[in-house]
């Protein structure tokens, strides 16, 4: 049978290749050999002949002051640091050499491997080919690149999400369409030559509700208004909240002035029904301006909106809570030669 020692008798250079960060310490506690990569890290030249425990500080296990103590730490995980300028901490393990030959202490970088490699400018050749340190460095670098890319992607997605929300067509408080949606509907209708009516509604006394009972009451009232507007219109019509207390209703293929006036009256009537919120009674009303596509040879969204707005203000001047048709407004000139001058 072959003695174990026959296998382990290694030439120093081979030991250095296998474990380029080991130290051999004699029975007396003196350093006999420092492997090349470790030697590269240590300033102050050759450590051979110096006492091991004077050169290194054992941080774990503690209370190791002599070679005798160190022998008890054989095969235990060691955490250590070189005394002096070198800040790098190492992990290590000590194993006894043949009787009377001292200890072999093999070291490696701990978790701070990346910093250590950078600080000491180590290369592939400084590590044993079996050591995965280089793979670890590669991974750190590759993962960092991927993480950066991922962060960028998240930032772009976040920006896109905000943009998408801004572009969404729904008013989040009331569930009605928003101004953007209304613009689209109007653009489509004016472009296609369809017959339709446009009703501009502005709530009366809403500011008082907000100021007196607070925004929660105001929001409750707005939601109630939205419900009334949806109930008083047909599926094909468009109801949009285009400002704090402003609404635009678009009636598909409905251009009869009397019918429209009737709808407006009903809406105003229902808006005037008291709404209770948190034990308080909120009262509002509404003023309306009504225009129809048939009043224009070539309806233009901006013009129709401006005219409906003017009609709405005529209603306000008349004492609120009523509806006015665009062509009833004083000074209405229709599509005359002065039209452009007037709207400019």
């Amino acid at each position: 049978m072959v003695e174990a020692g026959d296998f382990t008798a290694l030439a120093a250079e081979h030991l250095d290749r296998l474990m380029p960060m080991h130290v051999i310490v004699s029975e007396t506690g003196h350093i006999r050999h420092v492997a090349p990569t470790l030697a590269k890290l240590l300033p102050g030249g050759d450590l051979a002949g110096r006492r091991f425990l004077e050169v290194i500080e054992l941080r774990r296990p503690r209370n190791i002051h002599s070679m005798e103590d160190l022998r008890f730490a054989v095969e235990a995980p060691l955490h250590l640091r070189f005394r002096g300028a070198l800040q790098t901490t190492f992990r290590g393990i000590a194993v006894p050499l043949a009787a009377g030959k001292g200890l072999l202490i093999n070291l490696s970088f701990g978790i701070a491997v990346a910093d250590a490699v950078r600080d000491h400018d180590l290369t592939n050749a400084d590590f044993a080919p079996t050591d995965l340190t280089v793979e670890m460095l590669y991974l750190i670098e590759a993962k960092t690149a991927v993480m950066n890319e991922s962060r960028n992607l998240n930032r772009r997605l976040q920006t896109a999400r905000i943009a998408a929300e801004e572009q969404a067509y729904t008013d989040t408080l009331t569930g009605l369409k928003n101004r953007r949606a209304m613009d689209h509907v109007l653009a489509r209708l004016t472009g296609s030559g369809a017959r339709f009516a446009l009703m501009h509604l502005d709530l009366d006394y809403f500011k008082d509700v907000n100021d007196t009972y607070g925004h929660a009451a105001g929001d409750h009232v707005l939601q109630n208004v939205a419900r009334v507007l949806v109930e008083e219109t047909r599926e094909a019509d468009t109801v949009a909240r285009v400002g704090g207390d402003e609404f635009v209703l678009i009636f598909d293929r409905q251009v009869d002035p009397d019918r429209l006036r009737g709808i407006a009256s009903r809406i105003i009537e229902r808006l005037e029904e008291p709404v209770s919120f948190d034990g308080k009674t909120c009262r509002i009303s509404g003023s309306v301006g009504i225009g129809t596509s048939t009043l224009y040879a070539q309806p233009v969204a901006e013009v129709m909106l401006a005219d409906a707005d003017a009609a709405l203000y005529a209603s306000k001047r008349k004492g609120r809570a009523c509806a006015t048709l665009v062509n009833e407004v004083e000074g209405w000139v229709g599509e005359g030669a002065d039209r452009e001058k007037q709207t400019a």
Binding site: N124, L137, Y138, A142
Partner: peptide, 30 residues
């Protein structure tokens, strides 16, 4: 970045050539 990641493959161009065998696995790690 890519140049650096490939340079991890070896100290010389020939080492690098041999490391191409592992390239797919290396990239998949990341």
């Amino acid at each position: 970045g890519l140049r650096r990641l490939l340079r991890f493959g070896g100290v010389s161009f020939v080492d690098f050539l041999h490391s191409l065998d592992d390239l797919q696995d290396r990239v998949r790690l990341a």
